[in-house]
């Protein structure tokens, strides 16, 4: 499976967020999208899942399920955690597992993976920011999807939780999944491909060449 972008551009509010973007990620690879604030990291992820319309260029998935769109084969972990404070930890996860997945999910196992077992019956309102983030990540474990699109996945996670996330990403990649992660710091995975979005937002560099696609 290979996710390719050719000459991809994104326009928001009459402004080019990025243009002329080329990259490719294959199964078993991690692409780290880096760049300063406002460089368009989040917009790129949202473009891939179809929440923002592709301005120009092409976005294709080779070797995926032809019946499904890219978004339907991808997990998107945005800035917000998509949790309801009045529902319990398990209820939140069970909802997303039921909504996103077609087969019954192992809620308890997913909670163990993110280290939230024992809090299953707790209302999510009581969780700290880091715990909410982990509950949000549990969704990726509960429902199997090959493509993970992560927007600042380590935000509000402590060291232990970051290590656990890295282990999770490694095992996902090892099982043939792919990860595209927007991050401003080092992602901590050994030698991932990097896509730098810096300078892309400047109008004068609209034709600037992006990181060349790695075949």
């Amino acid at each position: 499976m290979r996710l390719c972008a050719v000459d991809l551009a994104c326009h928001r509010g009459g402004r080019d967020i990025f243009t002329g973007l080329n990259f490719a990620v294959a199964s078993g690879e991690v692409l780290a999208v880096t760049g300063r604030n406002g460089a368009g990291k989040s917009s790129l992820l949202r473009t891939i899942v179809g929440l923002i319309r592709v301005g120009r260029g092409k976005l294709t998935l080779e070797g995926g399920d032809p019946e499904l769109t890219i978004a339907e084969q991808a997990h998107y972990l945005g800035h917000q955690d998509a949790l309801k404070p009045s529902l319990s930890v398990a209820e939140n996860l069970r909802f997303w597992a039921g909504f996103l997945g077609s087969e019954p999910a192992d809620i308890a196992a997913a909670l163990v993976t993110v280290g939230l077992d024992g809090l299953a019956d707790l209302p999510s309102a009581y969780l700290s920011a880091g715990q909410r983030r982990r509950l949000s990540i549990a969704r990726l474990v509960a429902v199997k999807r090959p493509i993970w699109l992560l927007d600042e996945p380590t935000s509000s996670l402590d060291d232990a939780a970051q290590n656990r996330l890295m282990a999770l990403l490694r095992s996902h990649v090892a099982e043939g999944g792919m990860v595209v992660a927007a991050t401003h710091g080092p992602i901590g995975l050994g030698g991932p491909k990097e896509l730098r979005l810096d300078d892309m937002a400047l109008p004068s560099s609209a034709t600037a060449a992006a990181e060349p696609a790695v075949p």
């Binding site: 280290g115 939230l116 707790l122 700290s128 715990q131």
Partner: peptide, 10 residues
């Protein structure tokens, strides 16, 4: 107790 529980798991 539940709030303490949430803190304890961290």
């Amino acid at each position: 107790l539940r709030l303490m529980q949430a803190n304890a798991v961290s």
